[in-house]
Design a protein around this nucleic acid. Structure first.
Lengths: 264, 264
DNA sequence: TAACGTTTATGGTCAGACCATTCGTAAGTT
DNA sequence: AACTTACGAATGGTCTGACCATAAACGTTA
């Protein structure tokens, strides 16, 4: 028996996929800064030769890295895998996918935003630098100037929240907040809120902004709460069709939560 | 000129990768619940035949889905692509990657946790169900019982925060909080805090838990702030070597943030 | 100078083969 | 009967080599 057990000490030489090893190695190079964003990786054929594998293997690795958002593949001459400057997009899509798979009602995302964005508004009132105040102001103006176009309006809405995120002095807030916003955007994509709602939204944003500009953190926090709750209120009709509950488990959770929220 | 411009109306029939189309289609099937978690997709050869593509193409699609964490590939007879029940893991790894690439100091992650976890503690004091209180109690006991093993201790630490997350009545909080915790874990993986620190940590957790159990939201919130700040204090020495700044830009940001934090 | 082919490097796709692993099962052994 | 072993089949993992499609650079011509 002793001789048999000792076999466990020998680990398999290679139980992993080659494409994973390749992807890991490239990822590490990028992580350690050996390849800067914007730069190009060698061509698939060169990589295959260098790693001593087939092209198919390299391609599988690249699919992985592409999915993670750390490289972008362009085809044609002078094409190839380019290292991208990663933003929160892949985090957002990861969260979106997770919430969709779990069939989380959009209301709960709003609830999470309600815990985070007001804090960010308060922080912004304290920390926001002039150039970011400027950016927010421009976003507000943009919103007011495009009440007739959902797409344009949304762009400036995004711009405002983005500036808010960047004014935290801490990118983690920005990433999380933008991911949550992106989930909302995804859920309501293609829906036109209507001019009246856009006007209200612009005014709510302006109230938040004004509080931030004059450095009134408490007011900014309150205004942000009002903004999100307000928007959520007139967004509700759209929600019903957008996120139907599926399993009884989910429905149960929702009812429970609703009950508890009322207690506030 | 008119005839030329009209050409723009014709969109390319297929400028996308086949593997993307395949991945999208499978993802949709899973998203719409046509394939349940645990079930197996057809074999690569069958999929290739069904989609009318090559196996290489199918494999690239599977690499994508695997990276997203929605399928798990097993090899050998009765192997194949199995639909997984997606948890927050892929969200966590996505966040970890993003923060590493941007070289975000771990301190800023702590700052974000400081904005979220205390709120969760407060909410838990109001909403937590008996079985989750039970779970937290067990986690606290586990921590106390394993002060001598970093690995075991960490497991129960995780269990506590997990229970805290699940007691929100809103999975979004849970996902975000666990992702942030995972980033911390990743940054300090393999480090032994030492028995004394583990003892302190267990006591801090116990204080949070006791407040939650007696339904005292305000105290729970305060205790959680103390927990995170306390842990962060004695964790600082480890940080220095764990997250070296690289670009001057990043260093600038850090100094700025430090300055602003002091103003609190 | 501007419009238009041509070349070329590169990703995208394919077909077919063979290897490695895993599981079920049948045969053999105790 | 129970256990062990050996084999077969299904499936993912990898390779080879070819060809197509695209896009940028280059040269050519009006």
């Amino acid at each position: 028996m002793g001789s048999k057990v000792s076999l466990r000490l020998f680990k398999p030489v290679r139980a992993v996929r080659l494409s994973d090893v390749v992807a890991d190695q490239i990822r590490q190079l990028i992580l350690q800064g050996h390849i800067e964003p914007g730069h190009r990786l060698p061509s698939e054929r060169q990589l295959a030769e260098r790693f001593g594998t087939s092209r198919a293997c390299i391609r599988e690795a690249l699919r992985q890295l592409e999915q993670q958002g750390i490289v972008e593949i362009r085809k044609g001459a002078r094409g190839g895998a380019f290292v991208t400057r990663v933003d929160g997009e892949s985090l957002a899509s990861s969260l979106t996918l997770l919430l969709k798979l779990r069939r989380i009602p959009i209301q709960q995302v709003t609830e999470a935003r309600l815990a985070i964005e007001p804090v960010m508004a308060r922080r912004a009132a304290q920390y926001a630098r002039p150039e970011l105040i400027e950016e927010m102001a421009a976003a507000i103006e943009g919103m007011k100037a495009h009440l007739d176009s959902e797409a344009e309006f949304e762009h400036f809405d995004d711009a405002f929240h983005h500036a808010l995120g960047r004014s935290q002095g801490n990118p983690v807030f920005e990433f999380l907040a933008m991911a949550l916003l992106e989930v909302i955007r995804d859920a309501f994509s293609g829906i036109d809120y209507g001019r009246e709602n856009r006007r209200r939204l612009a005014r709510s944003h302006a109230r938040v902004f004004n509080a931030i500009r004059r450095g009134d953190g408490v007011a900014a926090e309150r205004a942000m709460v009002a903004l999100i709750k307000g928007a959520n209120r007139w967004l509700a009709p759209f929600v019903a069709s957008a996120a139907p509950p599926s399993s009884s488990e989910e429905r149960g959770k929702r009812l429970t939560r609703r009950g508890t929220r009322r207690r506030r």
